[in-house]
Design a protein around this nucleic acid. Sequence first.
DNA 1: TCGACATTCTAGAGCGCTCCAGAGTTTCCC
DNA 2: GGGAAACTCTGGAGCGCTCTAGAATGTCGA
Lengths: 331, 331
Amino acid sequence: MEDVAARAGVSRALVSIVFRGVTGASDETRTRVLEAARDLDYRPDTRASRLGRGRTRMLGVTFAVGHAFHGELLGSLYAEADAAGYEVVLSGVTPNRDDKAAVDTLLAERCEGLVLVGSGLAGPDLRRLGERLPVVSLLRPVREASVDVVRTDDALGLRLAVEHLRGLGHRHIALLDGGRAPGAAERRQGYRRGLRAAPGLDAVVLDAGLTELDGARAATGFLALGSHRPTAVAAFNDRCALGFVDVVRQAGLRVPEDVSVVGFDDIEQAAYPHVSLTTVRQDAARLGAEAVRAVTSRLDGVAATTGGAVIEPELVVRSSTTTLSRQDWSA
Amino acid sequence: MEDVAARAGVSRALVSIVFRGVTGASDETRTRVLEAARDLDYRPDTRASRLGRGRTRMLGVTFAVGHAFHGELLGSLYAEADAAGYEVVLSGVTPNRDDKAAVDTLLAERCEGLVLVGSGLAGPDLRRLGERLPVVSLLRPVREASVDVVRTDDALGLRLAVEHLRGLGHRHIALLDGGRAPGAAERRQGYRRGLRAAPGLDAVVLDAGLTELDGARAATGFLALGSHRPTAVAAFNDRCALGFVDVVRQAGLRVPEDVSVVGFDDIEQAAYPHVSLTTVRQDAARLGAEAVRAVTSRLDGVAATTGGAVIEPELVVRSSTTTLSRQDWSA
DNA sequence: TCGACATTCTAGAGCGCTCCAGAGTTTCCC
DNA sequence: GGGAAACTCTGGAGCGCTCTAGAATGTCGA
């Protein structure tokens, strides 16, 4: 910086002014400084700048590495944070690096707010964290008063799925349950409510989970039901649904003719023509935007109002669901 | 820090010593300082510490968010960097945030070295970057002298695949080509060499790519070949292979009885029992370790020797490949 | 012509840490 | 008993920036 100032024939303070893009420098010197910086291949040291400035304007984000939907969310978070004048700092959760470790590095960096994507952090830790700085739990509903929750209306999503299937004539609809996964409890509830809304439907909950493997395992249980087999299933998520479809097809059943399947998330794969999975879409862009809004509005003191948001999902009908076929009626 | 020092009745310098874990403090004061810090919920400010220290000991990593195999690599990078006494700083590449932007933030943070996972950075940019600081291109082979490359021996991988299929009696083996994807050229070459090694085999290269969708599209072309159809295919990667399998199965063909398929990567899904894909395994742990070694050895001046490494892949035989069945022989 | 007011620029005190040089203490060996 | 060596601790300069207070210069209306 010293060098740049010297080369441009100005003071260090001027260089700082130019690089921060604030007023206080003539256009002429501005270009002169920029030129000098380019010649010297200089770029401001963000660590030092954050130190000098009181605030860091950094948003810490924890996420599961390699998780497709988290990836989509990150894209949105980057864009929204940038628009709000914040910088995002990533901290990945891996099998050897838990949520706690991920959060700790973000705190040590002095992030001003945290977005935890599908975090598995324990309740008390979460609460304490929320008391320390603005925190939003993205995707995962938690009941700690100190943290905002931004999530899809999971219950509504499953109600939409069930209603869609009911509308197609299905009466025997199974749930591939997500167990303890984020949002699973709400989806289960939505499923139950959806069934209760119409008489003569009964619930069949099959243990599954959030991967294709879980869906495949559940399919084995499903096939074992023999003639009591439901004619449709609503899965915890798309990956689970895809695993299920693979296995029932290998067993000779047709999708959707013999069994209709609906997923959740609307991951990229679901839209591929050869897959064409009917599913409940989560709006990654809006989820990201709301998460950033929740934390930045607290930071900027815009509103003392509680943050958090529940985004309505949307049913995307593709070709993994169809009306109950004739032979099924006769069964 | 001031507060902690006061509470423990020592100087600020002592607190620094304790938190850096260096020698120069008695066990007694050490615990006293730690206690005071805990009471005050203090943790050192990493920005300031990096500023004060000459070096940052930070390794910048760019990667594609939501990419499963990149995720596995990140896990390994975190672990290895930690062991080498470095910290990893993530910078995601998203549809709206290109490789260049990702790298720029890492430079502004003053990372000492860079690991670019499957980066799409242009050659000249890459070269200039490599001249500025130690850079390793992970997965993507580049010919810039200034950057180290750590990758799987892609050509060998495809040779293994082809040899495996040949050993099963296949004579007509297609390649689902990866086009311009990282490593695709090498795999194509390995495929060609593998075929040339034995007389009477000819190459059938079908355009594909790196997603299930690409594999599915290639499958359509494959099916259109009718009776000239190859009896086995080697795919650019597992995702591509899985898309291919989906489509040919939907068309009534059996895998592996009618067509044997081998993938590349050995992603988690490939090992699921209902998938059980024969594939060429890339060793994520070793790739990560070598990448970290390459950049840290340059930084620590351990060796002036060139970095980079080519890791041998390993064929994992599962049940998507089998010997050429009788009816195929008669065809 | 003069003061009021912009505009452009600079000096210098931080920000929270690290680390060197050196002050005090204790240990140890001849 | 004396000095070297080892240990424990402290003061203070410095890392590269930001930002406030104020200097220097220019502009303009009365």
